[in-house]
Design a protein around this nucleic acid. Structure first.
Lengths: 194, 194
DNA sequence: CCTACCGATCGGTAGG
DNA sequence: CCTACCGATCGGTAGG
């Protein structure tokens, strides 16, 4: 399989990029950094990728896609709003836990995308955010959530979820499922009408 | 007052830096960017500052200081834990609201500090975080907070508070005080024992 | 996949 | 505060 080795190199480069972009940031990471990590010369990277930004695009849109896919599942299930929200929180944490480095890049480095990718990315992010907000609004309308400000709640919730990559170590004492339960306890129980 | 003009230039440079570092990030902002913003040549910046990093240091440690000062006030007041926490949240939001650009730099760009400033910064951050965690622990011990995981709660709370600079516009419909009340509603009421 | 190399840009200095 | 300039490093290309 002659394409297999090239394919592995591409993956190697992307994995190195995820880690380095997370550590040092996209701009501060040089192609020479990535080359060294992979064990080839910087010029040779260009046999596997088109440009530095292409790597960033792949990382950001891969994670964005994962979030949108799990949200679609949540929306399709015909559950009450509180369980929908719980599921959305749990799956969001799952995506982050499965892709800690990439999630860090997704949260931190997307702003270095050039157009039209930048706008595309923002659209996908807004779409995801809106899905969250709709669940909140449904809960408020149905009288099962307190009459909170859905926009502020949503942004606070997503900030706290997206901050997870900064301190969470899945190999530590809490697995992703347990972490989700903590977050639901803080952020969900408090808004449910008794 | 001959030093006044120099002093103003320094402030101008710092203000330009706060905005540019927030917009483009510390690494991607060049000294030529800052010079253009201030209306002088890049080389002339060095009559007012020692280095690019010195500017970053000033911004990061200024905000860190503000957080530590307000936390000291909270700790000195002899209030029950729930009111202490409410006050800490409110004052944290106040500091961010009063320094939106600098707060963004504080949250995002501190990692580009070199040693020994990096360690110093982390220490101050940990100290502040510990103060928050102590308030939570006091509340749990006193039986007024539910038996949550204080570490996870604290990190979730701080992430959501520090995320505020990303979307909050103080000139919008919510003033900082109202914003604080929303955050207390989501993040404080849910953990108080009824 | 490498060597050799490009133009552009960086933070910062010398000297006035 | 400016002009002139430095060495270092950047993303990327040519050619094999």
């Amino acid at each position: 399989m002659p394409s297999k080795k090239t394919s592995n190199r591409r993956e190697q480069i992307h994995e190195a990029a995820q880690n380095k972009f997370r550590e040092k940031g996209y701009i501060a990471t040089s192609m020479r950094d990535l080359a060294q990590e992979v064990g080839i010369e910087a010029a040779s990277l260009y046999n596997h990728i088109k440009s530095k930004e292409e790597i960033l695009q792949n990382i950001c849109f891969d994670i964005a896609k994962q979030f949108l896919v799990v949200m679609q599942k949540v929306e399709q299930n015909d559950l009450p709003p509180s369980e929908k929200l719980q599921q959305a929180i749990t799956l969001h944490i799952q995506v982050i836990s499965n892709n800690l480095a990439a999630a860090a890049v997704f949260v931190h480095e997307w702003r270095f995308l050039s157009q039209p990718y930048l706008s595309q990315f923002k659209n996908q992010r807004d779409q995801y955010e809106n899905s969250f907000r709709n669940i909140i609004q449904q809960g408020i309308d149905a009288g099962v959530f307190k009459t909170i400000n859905p926009k502020v709640y949503c942004l606070a919730l997503l900030s706290s979820l997206n901050g997870i990559y900064e301190w969470y170590h899945p190999e530590g004492e809490l697995n992703p499922k347990e972490l989700s339960e903590h977050f639901c306890q803080f952020l969900l129980k408090g808004i449910i009408v008794e």
